[in-house]
Structures are given as C-alpha cells and as structure tokens.
Computed example of a mutant assay.
Amino acid sequence: MRLCFLVEEHYRHDGMPNEVIGRLTAWGHRVDVVRPGGSLLRMTEAVGTGAHDAWVLKTVSGGPGLTLLEAAAAAGMTTVNDARSIRGVRDKALAAALGRLRGLPLPVTYAVADPELLREIPDAEYPLVVKPADGSSGRAVHLVGSPGRLEALLPVLAGEGMLIAQPYVPNSGTDIKVYAVGGELFATERCSPLHPDPSVRERRVPLSAEVAAIAAQVGAVYGLDLYGVDVLLGPDGPVVVDVNDFPSFRQVPDAAARVARAVLALADRGAASSAPGVVPMAAAGVGAAGGAQAYPLPVSIPAQLTAGVGEGA
C-alpha cells in the first residue's frame, strides 16, 4: 500500500506516529510524510493524483493538516479517521453538544467567543473547568474555583479564541484514558492535568464493563476508529471529559504494530466499501483478535450497560 501521513511539527520526533511509519515501511508499504505546518502546499494539486490508498492525520488541533485531510476526503480518498469525524471532536463545543444529544455522559458545557461572557455563568456552577474549544494535550486547561478567580484569569484567556466551560467533576485526581485501536479497548490511569502529582505514574488498569460500553459508544457517536477517551469516575458515575482522534496510545502493548495494522485494515475497508456487494468490516462486526486487557468493540451496546448514561455530573 501507499499511505500519506500528515504530521505536524509538534509530533516530528514523537514515537507516535514515527514508530508506526517505521513499522509500515518495514512491512514493505510506502509511506509519504507531509508536514503541513512547514510546507508550501499546492492545494489544487496536493490530493488530485489519487496516488495514496489512505491519508492519516497526526496533528495538533487547529493546525493546517485537517484542511488537507478534508480536501483528500472531498476528492474521494480514504482517510484515517473520517475527516468529518475528526472535525467533530476537535471542536470541543460541537463535540459536547453532539455527545449529550446522543446520550454520552458529558458535563453541561458553556461556549463563549469572548471570555468576559463567562461572567454570566451562574455561581452555582462553580468550580468550573475552562479550556480552549480547539485545545489539545492539556493546553490552557484551568480549574476556576470562583467568580473572583475568573476575573483574575480573563487576561490570560483573552488570546485563546473560542472557550468552553464545564462544571468540575469531583474525582480522585486521576483520569482513566481508554484507547481504541484495531477493534479493541485498552485502559490506563494517569494523573489529571488539573491535579499534577509527579508521584502518579501512568499505568495499565482493568477496564470495567460500564466504562468499556461508554468508550465503545464514543466511537459510534462520533464515527471514529482510532481514538482516545478521557473518563473521570465522578460521584454519579463515569463522565466523558475529552475525546481525541489518533492519540498517543501510551501503555498499549505493541502499540506501533497495533496502530499500523489498524491503519492498513481501515485503508482496506475504505477500498472495500466502494466495491459493489462488499460489506465493510464495521458493518460485519469484524475486529482484531483479543488479548490481555483488550476488549472487542461491540457492534451494538447492551442496553443494560448504557441505561442511565444520558446525564453528566
């Protein structure tokens, strides 16, 4: 296969996706790497040749790579993930609206273009978590304990563009990060960016049936294949606080090979879906073989696992 990876400068030296690219190359596939933030792109010709079997995006939110991926999708190319799905989760205000509408346990979310409008949020909603609507990697996430603290933060927030604010979900200070790759789910526990603690190391943890069902539902709601979900175990149950397309897959066993196989399978699926009489893998319920601490993504989620999931804390 011939694949095109769109890799932002931020990830130029990261193991993910470089190890995936190395694995694919070692398997005999051709991988072209485009750095959309550091290249002069002739947009009228960049996707017109149809020379790639699939396009893969690993960029920061708000970077130029998504525009190029969307152009490839518009030209009929297979993209990993679906370009519209990526756009849907990278806009956190849109993601929150879609997620709650479709039954995911997300917090109530406010969105503002001018940070001074955050003053209108009722005092009863404090403490708040405020972050950029296009943020990633924990950038500019603030725990705002009171309206007075908000006033002090307004100058800092002024340059962040669209913002979202959500009531803080009381928790133990750790997040559950669930990674979905190759039809399987893997869970890790890590320190919350709101409660930094150098003594807390990221580690693999068992994945409960309730959190697994929510994580699988995230993929179905947003149309993602490779993704990560940040979950807090709040007093009223699990709450989804972030969704990432193509995350780091840290602590996933043999992550580079798993992601590489998933990319190839999705490229094959994209080709198969356009062939008459061929049922795509997702519709047929085909997934990768299970392993330790791996949970196959269900085609449908049992009702008993999703009952009462509609409201976030």
Rank of each mutant, 00 (worst) to 15 (best):
C4E: 09
F5S: 00
F5G: 00
F5L: 04
L6H: 05
L6S: 02
E8M: 07
E9F: 01
H10I: 07
H10Q: 12
H10D: 11
H10S: 06
Y11Q: 02
Y11E: 10
Y11S: 00
D14T: 15
D14G: 05
D14H: 14
G15E: 15
M16V: 12
M16S: 08
N18R: 14
N18K: 09
N18A: 06
E19T: 08
V20W: 07
I21N: 01
I21Y: 01
I21H: 00
I21A: 00
I21M: 06
G22L: 09
R23F: 12
R23E: 15
R23H: 12
L24S: 05
L24I: 03
L24F: 03
T25R: 12
T25G: 01
T25Q: 11
A26R: 11
A26H: 08
A26Y: 04
A26D: 12
G28N: 06
H29N: 07
H29Y: 04
R30M: 11
R30I: 07
V31C: 07
V31D: 07
V31K: 05
V31G: 01
D32I: 10
V33M: 06
V33I: 15
V33P: 03
V33A: 02
V33N: 02
V33W: 05
V33R: 00
V34F: 07
V34E: 10
R35W: 14
P36S: 04
P36L: 09
P36T: 02
G37E: 14
G38D: 15
G38W: 10
S39G: 02
L41Q: 10
L41I: 15
L41V: 15
L41Y: 05
L41A: 01
R42S: 06
R42N: 13
R42L: 13
M43H: 08
T44Y: 03
T44R: 11
T44I: 04
E45S: 11
E45C: 05
V47R: 14
V47P: 04
V47C: 09
V47H: 11
G48V: 10
T49D: 11
T49N: 13
G50T: 10
G50A: 02
G50P: 02
A51I: 03
A51T: 05
